[in-house]
Nucleic acid binder design. Structure first.
Length: 141
RNA sequence: CGUCGCUGCCGGACGGCCGCGUCGCGGUUCGCCGCGCCGAGGAAAGUCCGGGCUCCGCAGGGUAUGGUGGCUGGCAAAUCCAGCCGUCUCGCGUGGCGGCGGGAUAGGGACAGUGCAACAGAAAACAAACCGCCUCGGUGGCUUCGGUCACCGAGGUAAGGGCGAAACGGUGGGGUAAGAGCCCACCGCGGACGUCGCAAGACGGACGGCACGGCAAACCCCACCAGGAGCAAGCCUAGAACGUGGAAAGGCGCGACCCGCGCCAUUCGAUCCACAGGUCAGGCGCACGAUCCCUUCCGGCAACGGCGGGGACGAGAGAAAUGGCCGUCCAGGCCGUCCGUCACCAUGCGGCCGGUUGGACAGGACCCGGCUUAUAGGCAGCCCCCGCAC
RNA sequence: CGGGGCGUAGCUCAGCUUGGCUAGAGCGCUACGUUCGGGACGUAGAGGUCGCAGGUUCAAAUCCUGUCGCCCCGA
């Protein structure tokens, strides 16, 4: 099984992040929020999943801690989640600092929130029809 | 032996699997793939100082502003480091000084000026009379007619009382109506000058005759230092645009001000305003340097410096890479158990087995030197003489 | 990278300029009064290491230095 994690598997630009944030397909937990957006390549092929992680200084003032949180999420994505999420861009946004020894619980939370977000539709309050620039609403795989 | 304190150092090692970043080589269906090297700290942190580097045409003068404040040395430089001096303080010692040892120290100037000092107290800064003490005058009482007491008034007096953080030298003697550096001795204070020291200062001291109180981490004065911005500095390449309307005689260049200097412009119009248009592109800067490690010799009390020899290149990316699982070792802690060593006990040392913990503070963003702060545990040295044993 | 500000009673703030007289105000809290009871009102009272550590001074919330925490600007 491929467990790599390379540049094309990440959200890299502000545009990527903005696209995921505006999709409104999300699920929130105590310590973090998971956002999803579907993605297709030009030829219609299913794109590999991409991950973006956001940890602000408000979550923790210590750089070490912020790095550690990113690594936890990245490791989980790399080892088990990336193949199930093919065709999706995922963004994990931390709201507060989880307990220092709570890695297992954090992993469970992420899995649960992902399931919730996948079931959720594009968002209950759809923007005014005809206003959005021709985006295709994502379909849950 | 342990502990406290201070100083310095270390702050896991090796290996396996999966994974990440730069670079190099090879391959490629141009998506990427394979192999190899290297890949966070002593504080990478706070950003408190100092530099390097880069640009601002020149860095020139003055003012302002800010900083520094014993001396000498060290360093590229410094609010850093070392040594020394002064002051304060603690301990030891002495009859008392001198002395010895430790600690702290932002430590120029209070005869340039302005200002501040609550409460208490008579009085708080060119001194001053509340009580007291003394003299003189007046009135009254008593009288042994010498005086004495009370009150009022005019003066003298800083020795005594009490206040305070601080009261215009201290002690003793002379002196006096009572007193006073008024005079004298010793001490304190100021101090021309001399000697020693590179210097801060140290020692001696004619003489003065008490005058000169405290606070400048109050304003301030003096001396010295500082041009400004910061790698989003800045340089190069590619690409887009190089239009419209209005105001306009001076504007801009250093961003506190003035001077000096320079540049652009004066209706074909510098510049300013509004609109329109463009920009989230790539490379360099970017890591071989006041570099790091080991070392002979020399100079210095030390910080540190010099000549020489050997060895090492150790992240540099774009919001930004070091992680996960496991094994062995190693290290320490705690508990339980057993054995050995010294003549014995305690302590200690060494060894065996079982269980638990892999630990603290913490992650580079142009780079260095220092400072400060955080830090589980361990090692070494010094100090102390607190505890235990002999 | 550069710059600025704040920390005082449970809460929101004043006092810092020019150190001392006194750490103060409002809300809240406690007790009593008033009311049949509550609210409002009246009277009395409690409550503060002035973020922390040093220093200057006779004396520091105030001045100086260091440090911790929080907030806000500019590029």
């Amino acid at each position: 099984m491929d467990q790599g994690f390379q540049p094309h598997q990440r959200l890299r630009t502000g545009r990527d992040y903005g696209r995921v944030m505006h999709k409104q397909q999300k699920a929130a937990g105590r310590h973090l929020v998971v956002l999803l957006a579907p993605r297709r390549l030009k030829g219609g092929a299913i794109a590999p999943a991409r991950l973006g992680i956001m940890v602000s200084t408000k979550v923790s003032k210590l750089a070490v801690r912020r790095h550690q949180l990113k690594r936890w999420v990245r490791e989980l994505f790399r080892t088990e989640l990336q193949h199930d999420l093919a065709g999706w861009d995922v963004c994990v946004l931390f709201r507060s600092d989880p307990p220092a020894d709570g890695r297992k619980r954090l992993d469970d939370d992420i899995r649960a929130l992902l399931r919730k977000a996948l079931v959720a539709n594009d968002g209950p309050r759809r923007p005014r029809p005809g206003n959005s620039p021709g985006k295709a609403p994502g379909k849950a795989p």
